[in-house]
Design a protein around this nucleic acid. Structure first.
Lengths: 106, 106
DNA sequence: AATTCATATGAAAAATAATTCATATCAAAA
DNA sequence: TTTTGATATGAATTATTTTTCATATGAATT
């Protein structure tokens, strides 16, 4: 697989708004407006992000009347987030460097 | 875990140079200059990236004479990359949208 | 077919991140 | 203790992403 592919995939997880969107879909599928309200972002911005996430198959979507309902590709996302959590638990428990933003001692 | 933590972690995988560095360490640990030569980047730039990767515990390092040898945290990185590969194989085999840069039909 | 609700799109502006360059530090060797 | 080799650092530049705003599109309802 191309290096480039990883880059694009991870870029979709390396941004606060995008992560907010993903986490907002954790429980159940939502429409664009519902997501926007939930995470307090502009509709338009959410839409832009959803396009990028969708292009990468990180979210799915289907039309429902005039709404479009987005859902999370949990098959991929859930285990990835779990790995990162484990990583943080193992490595960032306490003795982290000041600059490790993944740590609780931020 | 804070949303923010994920963001920081994934940012270290969402960049070509950083990925190049990680993949260059796949086989064996290398010094900064060795990495720089291998991936054709400036020493200084590689150093900047290594700091960021190291803060996040994605690479380890140890001094060896005047060199510093970096190695990959494969415990975390290897399974994550594997998951993304599986994701791409499943979702991007052929029918991908033009914008999916993770696909082979780029 | 006009209006309304929901989402998408494009271009411009703003914010962030990566790269470069010059130089500092630091360890070993001469 | 100066020189050399290896890496790190900081500031400035450049490049890339995100966000915003205005508006277009599209689907249902009247």
């Amino acid at each position: 697989m191309k290096n480039n592919s990883y880059q694009n995939f991870f870029a979709n997880l390396a941004n606060k708004s995008k992560l907010d969107i993903l986490l907002s879909l954790k429980d159940k599928p939502l429409s664009v407006n519902e997501i926007a309200k939930k995470i307090k972002e502009e509709q338009s911005n959410v839409s832009h992000h959803l396009k990028s996430l969708s292009d990468c198959h990180i979210v799915y979507s289907k039309k429902q009347g005039k709404k479009r309902i987005y859902s999370l590709n949990n098959k991929t996302i859930s285990p990835i987030l779990k790995l990162v959590q484990t990583h943080a638990a193992k490595n960032c428990s306490d003795g982290c460097s000041k600059n490790c933003k993944g740590c609780s001692n931020e």
